[in-house]
Design a protein around this nucleic acid. Structure first.
Lengths: 215, 215
DNA sequence: ATGCACACGTGACAC
DNA sequence: TGTGTCACGTGTGCA
């Protein structure tokens, strides 16, 4: 397009824009045009202020975006967007990794719990089918010597717990027969009570019942 | 600034820019200036092409940003940035929620695992301190009768696994003595091999070694 | 025809 | 010095 010199307004003539808000600039170059005296045309483009508002909104958005991105290399428009891009990529991979880990952990954890509870349920059911019930018998068979029979539900780690309890109670196990079948542990054992250990059969029976209930 | 009409170039005179790449426009308004014949000034601003490159890079970045955001309401510059902002906010809350869940789950599940492994490490250390090593002895003590001694690391559920293996191998346990101390299981047992079960002592020993290794 | 979004070329700065 | 970035006012096409 040709701009004719005479009888035509100058489209790009910079007007006085000192009333434009100078805040929230991106690069902050403070583009203040000095108005020299003289023949200033009163021409205004129809969308001048609209354009100003548009630019202002865009700058605000850009600043808002910048405020969200933690790693800022520069303040220029391009770097703001570039940093936002890399940040979004980081966040996306983060979300992927986290959800993957979470899914995996849920899968293992849930499976384990399910497997355990199924196992326990199975053994409980099996015990019920065979008419087996938890049972503890304790009898003295000599000084510091006890004979005991324990029937309890077969659970993983149950026997270890029982052994630990035995150790804590101060029992030494001799001639212990352990059978795991039909969803239950059957333990018959002759034990020797070390010095300081309990010797009351009834009391021991109650304690053992408590223990196998907790297993 | 005043633009004098005579003897001065027109700063905003649109030049022929048909050689500028028209691709990757944002709003795609195809701002093609029609060059009318006649007096076209040959004036070029010093940073004209630099500015063109800058704009092009910025447009590319903007498109790249747009390609990362799934929910797009519009194609305008402002909406691209706004959508990116909301998307980043979404991603951030997502990351927070996920990591929180993960931490919570690790607090429960991970503790269990850690506790278990610490336990195992403890027993292994205890075994090493006492100079105890995994050991399997198998001897025939009659037709279909075996005597065996097994020393293995004490783990939760280990004895149950051993019993299950025994059942699978077709062994019936009689007079089994089990002691759990010093971080190890000590199992001495006389077993009866049911019909169809293995009877070769050496083979049985290898199998049992394999099993207690897997416990 | 009215408003909106855009690319353009430019002068002013900053480093 | 130049190189890069900015805001500006504009023309233009589209809904």
């Amino acid at each position: 397009m040709i701009i004719k010199c005479d009888k035509m307004e100058f489209p790009n003539t910079p007007f006085d824009d000192s009333n434009i808000s100078e805040g929230s600039k991106i690069g902050g170059k403070m583009d203040k045009r000095k108005q020299i005296e003289g023949e200033v045309r009163e021409y205004k483009s129809k969308n001048l202020d609209a354009e100003r508002r548009r630019r202002q909104k865009l700058s605000e958005r850009l600043l808002e975006l910048r405020s969200l991105v933690p790693n800022i290399t520069n303040m220029t428009k391009e770097t703001i967007i570039t940093d936002a891009i890399t940040y979004i990529r980081e966040l996306q991979t983060n979300v992927n990794n986290l959800s993957e880990q979470l899914l995996e952990m849920e899968a293992t954890h849930g499976e384990e719990l399910e497997r355990k509870s199924e196992e326990i349920l199975d053994t409980a059911e099996e015990m019920a089918n065979w008419g087996i019930e938890p049972e503890v018998q304790v009898a003295h068979i000599g000084t510091n010597k006890l004979w005991m029979k324990i029937v309890c539900q077969k659970k993983r780690g149950g026997f270890t717990k029982l052994m630990e309890a035995m150790n804590v109670l101060g029992f030494d196990l001799n001639d212990t027969s352990v059978t795991a079948s039909k969803g239950a542990f059957l333990v018959t054992s002759s034990v020797e009570v070390v010095r300081g250990g309990l010797i009351d059969a009834h009391q021991i029976r109650e304690i053992l019942l408590e223990i196998i209930r907790g297993i």
